[in-house]
């Protein structure tokens, strides 16, 4: 998203290894079969909000234009509704491709900055790795502090209703032995 929309792509913008690396991820195998029909973009409830439609993300991924894809908001706006995936006439696992792109964007630190969705994903990840369970209210409060503390004021009316109806668990829920979760994750790290 450099300098608005006027950027031309050159050979130096291409990472030739990128397409094969995404196709090597679970769900990425069929990427080569895409016929650019646009069924995914048409089915996607989020595409009107995206800077790149899902069809364009697939085209750019296959062209090796890694930076365009990873700096795009599109993978993060995917809500995992899987409508593109079940409608795709070429059996491309579009939703799984979006997941592969999200993970790569986090690995490479290339996701759009000040964007709350990767912040939430990482906060969620850390909470579950530490406690074994997630506590929604705590997660939302942490997210607000990390992105826009003023949003807490806007959320207050809903928060009060949740409290009143007994639907806001304020404590941090956890498994009996959170070390067991840590042992699983550590063992995988080492393997």
């Amino acid at each position: 998203m450099r300098n608005g929309t006027t950027h031309c792509r050159y050979a130096e913008d291409v990472n030739p290894a990128f397409p094969a690396e995404i196709m090597a991820k679970p769900g990425g195998e069929a990427l080569r079969d895409c016929i650019q029909c646009g069924t995914c973009s048409g089915a996607c409830p989020m595409s009107v909000h995206m800077d790149l439609t899902p069809r364009r993300v697939i085209a750019l991924t296959r062209a090796g234009l890694e930076r365009d894809v990873l700096e795009s908001a599109t993978p993060w706006l995917c809500a995992s509704c899987y409508e593109c995936q079940v409608r795709c006439p070429r059996d491309i696992k579009v939703t799984e491709v979006m997941y592969a792109l999200k993970r790569r964007a986090i690995e490479k630190g290339m996701y759009p900055k000040r964007f709350p969705i990767p912040v939430l994903a990482k906060a969620f990840y850390n909470m579950v790795a530490t406690h074994g369970r997630n506590s929604e209210s705590r997660l939302l409060i942490e997210l607000a502090f990390r992105t826009n503390p003023f949003s807490l004021l806007k959320m207050a009316p809903i928060g009060i209703k949740l409290l009143r109806t007994g639907r806001m668990a304020l404590g941090q829920d956890h498994t009996k032995n959170p070390k067991e979760i840590k042992a699983i994750l550590d063992a995988m790290e080492e393997s």
Partner: peptide, 25 residues
């Protein structure tokens, strides 16, 4: 007994194999 969080969409966005392991527990 002592179930843990499934990881939802967020865990899968950070680490796929660990997300699967959490569910598999």
């Amino acid at each position: 007994p002592d179930w843990n969080c499934c990881g939802a969409t967020s865990y899968m966005s950070v680490s796929e194999d660990k997300a699967v392991a959490l569910a598999a527990r």
